[in-house]
Design a protein around this nucleic acid. Structure first.
Lengths: 234, 234
DNA sequence: CGTCATTTTGATAGCACTCAACGAAGGTGG
DNA sequence: CCACCTTCGTTGAGTGCTATCAAAATGACG
């Protein structure tokens, strides 16, 4: 149940090349400066999106990958009947969008976000020459795959388990601070967990009543009993 | 909903190197012969597994990747309470098992199967030198990721939709023959779809009653109305 | 302070699960 | 060749969890 943590790109805000934000590859790199220059030629942005703005539409040509600079981005599909499912959230530092030819899902800002666009073909051609880049990309994708498997597994468990697992993971990723702030509205969490907002709300109320957590406000929780939360996840 | 088809490795049965079966990379390759030799040095097997045999255990070191030669392999997790979920099936030609450090899921034969083991580290080192290999691996993983997303989406739909989609996809992959033979027992399909065997059985009965398909036997179906089946999938 | 979006709560219904039993198929040994 | 056993699949009855519909709180923002 514990997702394996891979090296991921991190946002290099204090970049020497001005407004351009580059992927900061880990490890000493053969010719890091040359690589960075090559990468910045492929970049576009970063571009700012407000919540619910569409970054890439289902069916769009998948010419660009996305690197989240700030905020939260959702990868989702909306059906004819209006219902929506979110297959993944992406946080700052996440690189994603490896569709082939066309995006099968749409990419939208789940909270105000800055996104850097990276030309897919160009990155691929760099990767085919630079082994390190290639294995970095492979590792990133593998990591996403593992997360997706975890998510699939989660979807066939009880509402309590889904919500508990989501909150625990979010809390862990945000450093287990005193307050757990939900970065996206309940509707997005519900769509990610395959629940309705009503069930999500009721489940949180249930966790509150069992003393697992307290509500400071709708969007701000406090984890009271980590042990109990872990138990919920089974 | 239509999964994008990528180039995938195909099994080269009439291989010049005797019992060794190699990945047949697409496209003219710089030095294909050298590459094949390098790859066969990394191989182990193919090894034969009977149905339900464990190929790799949850928690095992992920030193090897798996290439399915024949049969069906399932990627799954079994919980303490005995329930099980299958996140993916792999068919002949599928290469998988890109976990980091340890496998988070177990790998088991869902039907009698032959599996070739490929040393992960070695393949990675080849990939870092051969751009084509690297991008092939990336494409394979990307394809798996896309499938996993489709699967996640499927998990929050009705039983009829899940079963219909599964059968349609299976039928498509097997060439839309007159008879659709289920390659794995109902239990495995149910675990893959997040349903119980009872619900699966009842759903198939329902499809039969609506004239979508007929049962020849438990494991052999005939698709009677493709249009109606497609409609089920929405 | 009014308006709108968001969240919470309540009442009810429906779908899939659970438990239970039966039927079909395949394998084994007498 | 048949009786027996085991595994697998089907069907039925009843329950429970989550969705749906409806409406009331809460909060954000002009």
């Amino acid at each position: 149940m514990t997702p394996v943590e891979l090296e991921r790109p991190s946002v290099d805000a204090s970049n020497d090349s001005g407004t351009t934000t580059a992927i900061d590859f880990p490890e000493a790199f053969g010719d890091k400066r040359t690589l960075k220059r090559a990468l910045s030629a492929l970049q576009r942005g970063p571009i700012r999106f407000h919540r619910d703005n569409v970054i890439a539409c289902e069916g769009d040509a998948a010419d660009y990958l996305f690197l989240v600079i700030s905020g939260v981005v959702r990868h989702c599909k909306t059906f004819e009947n209006g219902s929506r499912n979110i297959v993944a959230f992406y946080l700052p530092g996440d690189l994603f969008g490896w569709s082939n030819a066309k995006h099968g899902l749409s990419v939208e800002a789940a909270a105000d976000a800055m996104v850097l666009f990276i030309k897919r073909a160009g990155l691929l051609s760099i990767a085919s020459q630079e082994g390190r880049v290639a294995s970095f990309l492979l590792a990133t994708t593998t990591n996403d795959l593992q997360r997706s498997y975890e998510h699939s597994l989660l979807m066939s468990r009880s509402a309590t388990c889904r919500v508990g697992t989501f909150l625990a993971e979010l809390w862990r990723r945000s450093g287990k601070l005193k307050c757990l702030d939900l970065p996206v509205p309940h509707q997005d969490i519900a769509d990610y967990l395959g629940l309705t907002v009503e069930t999500l709300s009721r489940t949180i109320t249930g966790l509150e009543r069992s003393g697992v957590l307290s509500r400071v406000s709708a969007r701000r929780l406090i984890i009271r009993n980590e042990m109990a939360l872990e138990r919920m996840m089974r």
